[in-house]
């Protein structure tokens, strides 16, 4: 899975904000807020197709956290992205 190409993410204040540009902005008017690790996961999926396991591995390579914590993090972010139909 990966992020639809017509979204963009920016750091705004203390958080990251993802909003639609182009076609997606016609049916999605809000924004998605992510913390730093959420934005990291976003960045990976914006570049290429990733499996959930690859995302967890990438988190583990970057942050010193337990696998369960990383997996829960990824799962939470993916749920939000799925809910807003941001993934393809």
């Amino acid at each position: 899975m990966r992020i639809k190409s017509d979204f963009t993410i920016q750091k705004v204040g203390g958080a990251y904000v993802a909003v639609p540009v182009g076609e997606s902005s016609r049916h999605f008017h809000g924004m998605v807020r992510l913390n730093e690790s959420g934005a990291f996961v976003w960045g990976l999926m914006a570049e290429k197709d990733c499996s959930e396991e690859e995302l967890v591995d990438a988190i583990l390579a970057r942050y010193e956290v337990e696998r369960e914590v990383a997996a829960a993090d990824v799962s939470r972010v993916l749920a939000v992205l799925r809910e807003h139909q941001i993934l393809v």
């Binding site: 963009t8 904000v17 909003v19 540009v21 182009g22 902005s25």
Partner: peptide, 11 residues
């Protein structure tokens, strides 16, 4: 809303 550059600028 708008094109990518414009949205990034606004953010």
């Amino acid at each position: 809303r708008g094109d990518r550059d414009s949205v990034i600028l606004r953010l």
